[in-house]
Amino acid sequence: MNQYSYFKTPPAEFPPRILGCETISANAFQPDPDPDYIVQRFLFPGEVSMFAGPSNLGKSAIVASIAAHVAMGRDFCGMRVSRAAILYVAAEAAKGVLKRAYPFLSQRSAKAAAFAVLDMAVDLSNQQEVQRFATDAANFRDYHGCENLMIVFDTLNLCMGDGDENSSRDTGRVLANATYLAKTTNAHVLIVHHMGASETSRPRGSTTLTANVDTGFTLHKADDTQPDGTVFIRVHKQREDEKPAPMAFQIKGFEIGKNRHGERTTVPWAVPFRPDSSLVEESPTKASKKAGPTISTLRAKDLLRVLTELHKQDGGEWHKPKEIGQMSGEPFNSIRGNADTMRKKVRAALDALLAEGRIEESGKGVRLRSGGAKTTDQSAQGPLH
Rank of each mutant, 00 (worst) to 15 (best):
G73S: 06
R83Q: 15
V81L: 01
G73N: 10
Q107L: 12
S109L: 01
M160C: 13
F104I: 03
D136A: 14
K99D: 15
S106G: 02
F115M: 03
A85G: 14
Q131V: 14
Y143K: 12
M79N: 13
G145M: 02
E129H: 11
Q127A: 15
D136V: 11
V117P: 03
N139W: 05
K111N: 02
N126W: 10
A116T: 11
M160V: 06
R100A: 12
E92Q: 05
A134S: 14
A101G: 15
L124S: 09
D136S: 13
A138V: 08
M150H: 03
Y88H: 09
A91F: 06
L98P: 00
G73A: 07
A114C: 07
A116K: 11
A137Q: 06
Y102E: 10
Q131Y: 08
D154I: 04
E129W: 00
E147S: 13
A85P: 04
C159F: 07
R100F: 06
T155V: 08
D119C: 02
Y88A: 03
G78F: 10
A134E: 07
R74G: 02
G96N: 03
Q107E: 14
F133M: 06
D136L: 12
T155I: 10
F76V: 13
L156D: 09
Q128R: 13
F153V: 00
T135Q: 12
V130Q: 06
K99I: 01
K99N: 15
Q128P: 01
G73H: 02
H144V: 03
Q107T: 07
P103Y: 07
F133T: 02
E92H: 06
L87Q: 12
D154W: 04
G78M: 02
C77N: 02
A121H: 05
A137W: 09
F76I: 11
N139R: 13
V122N: 02
A101S: 14
N126L: 06
H144F: 15
F115W: 13
R74I: 11
V117H: 05
S109K: 11
A116W: 08
Q127P: 08
D142H: 05
A84Q: 05
A94K: 05
M79C: 10
G96V: 02
K99P: 01
K111E: 14
R141F: 06
M79E: 12
G78P: 05
Y143Q: 13
A84F: 09
M160W: 01
Q127I: 09
V122L: 13
A93Q: 00
E147Q: 11
